[in-house]
Design a protein around this nucleic acid. Structure first.
Lengths: 344, 344
DNA sequence: CTGAAAGCGCTAACAA
DNA sequence: TTGTTAGCGCTTTCAG
């Protein structure tokens, strides 16, 4: 090791971390005065403040937030948003709504992705609790949320987003999946479709289960049979969904209408339809920016509103204990052509 | 004070924040043993660890990361990614690449949006510096980056992403905007286009300036005049871009080809073309998921690779000082139909 | 307006 | 395996 040599050089960056004491000494003031000057407190002579700031800049010093937080007993108010996939536009709309709502309350957002992995989710949540976050908004990848009780027990408000709580009393903000799906299937039925396919994402995700159940229910309500050959679940990527839809199209009796249970699956269906002369009718769950340009009929909720509601629930919880609530956001069905095609 | 009275009540939530001492007392061990048990250190009897954990759970205690961080002198290694718009898929691809690269190095990601606002950007960066982040990846909304010198001076490695540094020596990872744009315009020219429009985002963003300059250069190289009527800059939303493109289409001599200088502008152009029988050729900068399904020719870089490169640059910087580098990622032109339409 | 002393909650060092 | 002591860097008293 050549540490000593390196240490010897005069100018280079400080080896020992700088503290307020160093700045105070350099500026010729007491530690407390330096603290006041740098912390933006009043009652410091302008000249003193300038001298301290200059010294800090010269030395390359910055306040240590861990120390000030410890002494103050209160952190910068920060809310954590934990999602499953940073590349999914659904979460991005959510994040945008969350951020704007937080900004109105002077709260900071810090966002992390669990990559739909339970262990990663746990680590992220644990870190937020240790840091005494002002709150946590969680799109949980867990099947069972009992373990999350400890979050609230340790004083950090938690709101589950998009996925309904299971095995726990917790605030949640979700989408009215049943109404949305029922509307979509009913519209198909009204147009005379009788062979309506369902293409979904992973079954363990509660919105997917709700959408599937609503699909089955809507068929039953219309007196239509639920044909297992027309059901494809578990496509967690657009590519997988595309393959699933191709399989449906290759059936001896293909569906005349396809319901895709989230945005990724819808993208897959669009890809699968590309070279098909007379594709089935298509309605997808989740709105997306290019649906308009593509003429794709979608049903879904306002994701930014979902984010705003989640923040509102969090702040309500922070105000004091009360019964847990689950709010379901309404969906709208937006006709853009693909969903209105008649049976072949 | 009525502390004694309050303390006397049995059940309710603690008023005074809990500390390790409370847990240690409840578990009948010393503070240090409690620390070891909860901190996951070795050399604690399993029975002891269990007792301490149970006590902590009962009391609703969790370690205070500010205190442990202060004592340890080192935080959880966290990298901050600051982007301008959480809803832009370009940033989401970037975030995905960043996250995966960080995960390989055991680093955590925390992400925040400046909303393209300079003051917000400053506040976020300042907070990351105070928290002694392991590094900052910044898509800066600032025109001039001189003020960011203090970030590095205070010991936090900084890498500028997507936008070239100005007025500062700093590591940066950008896209080869000149090559990408030149390729796109050259392809138009090779197909016989002579009236090629440029539709861009805000001029103050350096990638936009580079793309515009490359557009002008490519026209000159082909011996074509730069017609100001065919240039529309400053569309920061898809809606604004749509209007700009409509204006171009309404010209007495409309363009036969349109180059859109980023993904948002491309979306606007697609919308503007919707009801047009014979739209001009279109090439857009930035790849996007639905380009395939829509048959839109795009030129762009791999955004996930951009994120990985940014992390690599950050870690290199963290290893020790060296000359600043700017790396430009190569672009590819992907023909999907819209760009290959001949002049009307 | 400025300063001295105390201590926030935790963990590194050293015992035992 | 467990306990004792000291102190991380800052801000809060309380005095000048």
């Amino acid at each position: 090791m050549t540490d000593d040599v390196e240490r010897g050089t005069a100018s280079a960056a400080a080896q020992r971390p700088l503290t307020l004491a160093d700045v105070a000494a350099a500026a010729g003031v007491s530690i407390k005065t330096a603290s006041r000057a740098l912390g933006g407190e009043p009652n410091v002579a302008d000249s003193t403040r300038g001298r301290v700031r200059a010294a800090a800049a010269t030395l390359g010093f910055t306040l240590n937030s861990a120390a000030s937080q410890l002494r103050r007993g209160t952190a910068v108010r920060t809310v954590g948003l934990v999602v499953g996939d940073l590349a999914n536009p659904f979460y991005m709309g959510l994040a945008t709504g969350v951020e704007h709502a937080l900004r109105e309350h002077g709260l900071q957002l810090t966002m992390a992705s669990s990559d739909e992995d339970a262990a990663t989710e746990r680590a992220i949540v644990e870190d937020l609790v240790h840091r005494r976050a002002t709150g946590i908004l969680l799109v949980s990848t867990l099947d069972e949320h009992g373990e999350l009780r400890s979050v609230g027990d340790r004083g950090v408000p938690l709101v589950l987003v998009d996925r309904a709580p299971s095995g726990i009393e917790a605030d949640a903000v979700v989408i009215d999946n049943v109404a949305g799906t029922t509307d979509a299937i009913a519209a198909f039925v009204a147009r005379g479709h009788r062979r309506i396919a369902f293409v979904g994402d992973l079954e363990r995700l509660s919105p997917q289960r709700e959408r599937y159940a609503a699909y089955a229910g809507a068929l039953a309500a219309a007196g239509l049979p639920l044909d297992p050959a027309l059901v494809a679940r578990g496509s967690h990527s657009a590519v997988a969904a595309e393959a699933a839809v191709r399989d449906l199209l290759a059936l001896a009796e293909p569906p005349t209408a396809v319901f895709t249970a989230n945005n990724r699956v819808t993208i897959g269906a669009i890809a699968a339809f590309r070279d098909v002369a007379h594709p089935p009718a298509l309605v997808g769950f989740d709105h997306f920016e290019l649906a308009d340009a593509l003429g794709i009929t979608t049903v879904g909720a306002d994701t930014a509103a979902l984010g705003r509601e989640a923040v509102a629930a969090l702040l309500r919880r922070g105000d004091g204990p009360h019964a847990s609530t689950t709010r379901a956001l309404p969906t709208t069905l937006v006709a853009r052509g693909s969903g209105e095609r008649p049976p072949a």
